[in-house]
Simulated assay, not measured.
Amino acid sequence: MIETEMNTIFKICVEKRASDLYIIPDAKGCSVKYRISNQYHNLDTYSERKLMQMNNFLKFKANMILSENRRPQFGAFQWQIGHEQINCRISSVGDFLGRESIVIRFIYSETNMPINRLLPYQFEELAGLCQSSGLILFSGPMGSGKTTTMYQLAEKIQRQRTILTIEDPVEIHNTNFIQLQVNDKANMTYAELLKVGLRHHPDIFIIGEIRDELTADAAIRAAMSGHLILSTVHARNAAGTIKRLENLGVSRSDLKESLQAVSYQRLIETTQGSNGVLFDLLSGQNLKNIFDGTDNQKIPLERWHKNLAECVKNNIITLETASRYQ
């Protein structure tokens, strides 16, 4: 019975293309909600007994320790919805009362991820930039579709090229790519896997995240040796990604030589009730101006506002929505 109930919940999440499912304890038992972009949607509330049943069922599916309800645990399992198989990453942790909360990340196959691009020409511009070797960086909030964008760009320009991905964890299964997964306990770090990957002589690298100095250095060296590197960094805007790499020890001269473009993206609600990706691209002369110190700091903000205004003009998003993303 609990499997049937969970299947109903999962089916709703998958049909809505939710990124995460939350099972959170409350005073009466628990609340269940899912997330799309930065919006949370309540599904239902359940008793404390039902909370324990759901948690135990999910932990069993993920091969987690059922008796452990305080320390954090992580696991994974697959769930079939119709003809589609969804990879699920699960995280659990107990509060001071021993009540567990569970969060499940849904990982969809790239081919089953329809992406609505608010200004389609932006993706085509990105694809054009991917024709040359070098480093292209992607930033944006969690759940904004950065990994999906990188995969779809690689698919678009593949043409018999060898593509190797390094992720923690692998988020999108693609049988056309060589996919490596970080395992710090086995010393399979981003930097170490990059060294291994170079021996496979791929044309394109997808690096899940540049998060430390070793990975940043390895990514820059790979980009300067004739590879196309697609990766993400944590930054609040396109221009901020350059500062982030400098904070990780990359010299400005190496960045100027290797960095092809920077893309910042947000997932924004449309007038049709769906979500779409809007990009802020930094390349060519705009990128050169930053390195030369001639860039006006107001220009990136003005460029983003212009993109939002174009979406409003074309009735893609409302003025109210645009104001929330200024």
Rank of each mutant, 00 (worst) to 15 (best):
M224H: 08
K185C: 10
G226I: 10
L193G: 10
E209S: 06
I206F: 04
L198K: 00
I206K: 01
I207G: 05
A219W: 01
L228T: 03
R221Y: 10
A218C: 03
Y190D: 05
A216W: 08
I220D: 07
R211P: 04
L194S: 01
R211H: 13
L194G: 02
I210D: 06
G226C: 12
K195L: 12
I206P: 01
I220L: 14
F205L: 07
R221F: 07
A218Q: 15
T215Q: 04
G208P: 02
A216Y: 05
E192F: 06
N183S: 13
I220M: 14
I206M: 07
R221N: 12
A219N: 10
N183P: 10
A223E: 09
L198T: 05
G226A: 10
G226P: 11
A222K: 04
H201N: 15
R221S: 14
G197E: 06
G226H: 11
D217F: 13
L198A: 00
A191I: 03
T189A: 08
F205N: 09
R199P: 08
D203I: 06
I220G: 10
E209R: 04
A186G: 03
L198F: 02
F205P: 07
E209C: 05
A186W: 00
G226M: 11
V196C: 14
K195Y: 03
K185L: 13
Y190C: 06
L214Y: 11
G197S: 00
K195W: 03
M224S: 14
L194E: 01
I204F: 05
I204V: 15
N183M: 06
L198C: 07
R211S: 13
L228M: 01
H227S: 12
T189E: 04
N183W: 04
P202D: 06
P202A: 05
P202R: 08
D217R: 15
R199I: 04
A186R: 11
H201L: 08
F205G: 09
A222N: 05
L193E: 09
L198R: 05
